[in-house]
Design a binder for these strands. Structure first.
Lengths: 201, 201
DNA sequence: GCGAAAATAGCACGACCGTTCGTATTATTC
DNA sequence: GAATAATACGAACGGTCGTGCTATTTTCGC
């Protein structure tokens, strides 16, 4: 049946488990994710779920990776179809906003960053740190390209602007979760336009 | 001895408990705060600690209120000694940054906002929402005064600027927790200066 | 279809959870 | 100093937690 690699049914339920795990972690955070509740959700036994990952921490790591991969794809695939520069950068941000909207401002990548930001937790913190660094670098790269194309001033500091964009997205998630998405995204876009204008060439 | 109201010793240990609770909640969040660990920390029995609050939720609420009060005092008392306008607004932000530095970017008011932002949790969420609204209003008020004094352009939208300042503080906490305080605060101040400049009269 | 291998269930464990209750200790008041 | 109220303790409750085992079932290559 399957030509290249057999998903082997085990891998399929692994996906299913991660799917449900995401729903749970969205509400209670990565630390609030419990194997018992997860097993109940997918209709399996605790040990059955457990066997797929070997430990709770490995489950959390797997979930983190799965969501991160989806996040990158969701944002970058459409963005890479746009020409380099402002068009691509704005598309990234638009998709980022859309991602937050779809996931009801409960993006576990952000809450994980808050959960582990001050901890010496080891594996989890390290993974979160790496994901955040990677994404920030990607963002700075898009800014850099926009600058090279001449759509941002030549004295633009890509990492600085990436920080400022990121901060606004944090503000968006924060306000959307507490005060509602509409008002929050309106404020965010106003701020973004003003921000880009101040970096104009 | 005590002229007006006797702190009655019970209130004193209540303070002590909240002090330790804050240390714990900084690491594990409000949801990670457990009465057992807290009792161990203050050298009391679980039931002894419990009796002071009646329920875990009430403990969390009390902690939230205690920290919020301290936060407001820490920031506003020095700020109100400054003349209205930019001086006062900048002092507020400076103290805000300092607060985050002291508490090692583990401010539970912010992590609580993330923990409860998408939840239908009732009491906890409602309290967090109220605190965030109040503080945002305070911030917008300071912006408004600065505008009235003529140190910000007349077309400044106080709530919009308050949102943008808040977003930068979120960015500060985020980056400080993951990448270190020095770099983060440097980026934040650069962004703040640029932001204020763009609202100049 | 058969046998090996992977996937899942079932059960038990020790630890910790928040909470309750009866009792002992300690402060405060008269 | 005695009476009374405020505090704190200790044990126990029903649950849930993550994890380690051993069976049992299901899948998959031949």
């Amino acid at each position: 049946m399957n030509a290249v690699t057999t998903p082997s049914k085990g891998a399929a339920t692994r996906e299913l488990i991660l799917e449900h795990a995401y729903q749970l972690a969205r509400h209670d955070g990565l630390e609030g994710l419990s194997i018992g509740a997860l097993a109940l959700g997918v209709g399996m036994s605790k040990s059955g779920v457990f066997a797929h990952f070997g430990s709770r921490e490995d489950l959390q790591l797997a979930l983190l990776d799965a969501v991160s991969t989806r996040f990158i794809e969701f944002i970058m695939l459409p963005a890479l179809k746009q020409p380099r520069g402002m068009r691509r950068l704005r598309t990234m941000i638009e998709n980022w906003v859309e991602w937050g909207h779809i996931h009801q401002s409960g993006c576990i990548l952000l809450s994980a960053a808050v959960e582990y930001d001050g901890r010496a937790d080891g594996a989890l913190r390290e993974r979160v740190l790496k994901q955040q660094s990677d994404w920030r670098r990607e963002l700075a790269r898009a800014v850099s390209l926009t600058m090279q194309v001449g759509e941002l001033g030549p004295d633009t500091d890509p990492e600085q602007l990436a920080f400022e964009i990121y901060a606004l997205m944090l503000g968006l998630h924060h306000d959307a979760g507490l005060f509602g998405f509409e008002q929050a995204s309106s404020r965010t876009w106003k701020a973004l336009d003003r921000l880009f204008a101040s970096y104009q060439p």
